[in-house]
């Protein structure tokens, strides 16, 4: 499969935090879910890709070209939502349309007003009077209205109630009806990602832990609950991490390395993330 975006060896040093050799890809036609704790480096990675943060090293390719060399027109093929709303709060949606016309080379007013209509966003009200969910929808409406082929979304559903989140996920599914479209989406709310994403990209402490097809993850890992002695019988390589409880231990294990006699449960993305970050190692 062709890659829509490729990131290789991205590095950035801040005081007290650094991105180390971040590499991953976003295949064309796929949704990549970007997970990790707060401060793990998701936003910094996304900002580095978009050129908001000057990376110390690394190669970023989008649509087969180096990011640094692409012009405005091509950058407009990327739609973004960057966590907090980044739009002029004093304006209403009509004003915004007038301005975006000049910002994006491919601005599609009709699409924009359709989105606004679908989200039931009032056109004459100032953005600062909108609720958080509504603002997030405005951001997304803008991102979807300039013929973007790649969406880079940093926490687009943060702080939204389940209904609003579902509406946004719905919209993303619609966007993905076109096979040429791709999404890189970071989120805390793993259940959103669990549905939508084809790949999971997991970052911890500025390093990529893995990028894996989501279905493979659930096939590869399982949760094992047993006594600690029994856990020790396993090959240490097969145990990703474990939690010690009062009545036994639970561990995330690699299924292909664990004998059949150990009964495991399905591991969700949340389990996988938690054991990787907080689990004890054998």
């Amino acid at each position: 499969m062709q890659d829509c975006m490729r990131v290789k060896g991205l590095r950035k040093n801040f005081k007290g935090f650094s991105l180390e050799d971040v590499s991953f890809r976003v295949p064309r036609g796929c949704v990549v879910g970007f997970i990790g704790e707060n401060g793990a480096g998701k936003s910094t990675t996304i900002k580095s890709i978009l050129g908001l943060v000057n990376a110390d090293a690394g190669e970023i390719e989008v649509f087969g070209k180096r990011m640094r060399e692409i012009g405005r027109e091509e950058k407009n093929r990327i739609g973004t939502v960057l966590g907090e709303t980044c739009l002029p709060e004093n304006l209403n949606l009509k004003d915004l349309d007038g301005i975006m016309k000049y910002i994006f080379t491919n601005w599609d007013s009709e699409k924009y007003f359709q989105c606004a209509d679908r989200f039931c966003l009032p056109l004459d009200k100032k953005i600062k009077d909108f609720s958080r969910g509504m603002r997030q929808k405005v951001s997304l409406a803008v991102a979807l209205s300039h013929k973007a082929e790649l969406l880079i979304l940093d926490e687009p559903t943060a702080g939204l109630d389940p209904v609003a989140r579902d509406e946004i996920i719905d919209l993303l599914y619609d966007f993905m009806q076109d096979e040429a479209h791709s999404i890189l989406i970071s989120s805390h709310i793993l259940s959103d990602l669990e549905k939508l994403c084809d790949y999971i990209l997991f970052i911890h402490d500025g390093r990529i832990i893995f990028e894996e097809e989501k279905d493979m993850l659930t096939e590869k890992y399982g949760v094992l609950k047993c006594t600690e002695e029994r856990l020790r019988e396993l090959d240490p390589k097969s145990v990703v991490g474990f939690h010690r409880g009062e009545f036994g231990v639970s561990a995330l294990v690699k299924l292909d390395l664990v004998p059949r006699s150990f009964v495991t449960e399905k591991a969700g993305i949340e389990d996988i993330m938690l054991y990787f970050i907080r689990g004890e190692r054998i």
């Binding site: 978009l50 050129g51 973004t80 960057l82």
Partner: peptide
């Protein structure tokens, strides 16, 4: 408004 972030991401 975080406007700078927005326009820089938009290719300005």
């Amino acid at each position: 408004d975080n406007w700078d972030k927005f326009v820089l991401a938009a290719g300005v």
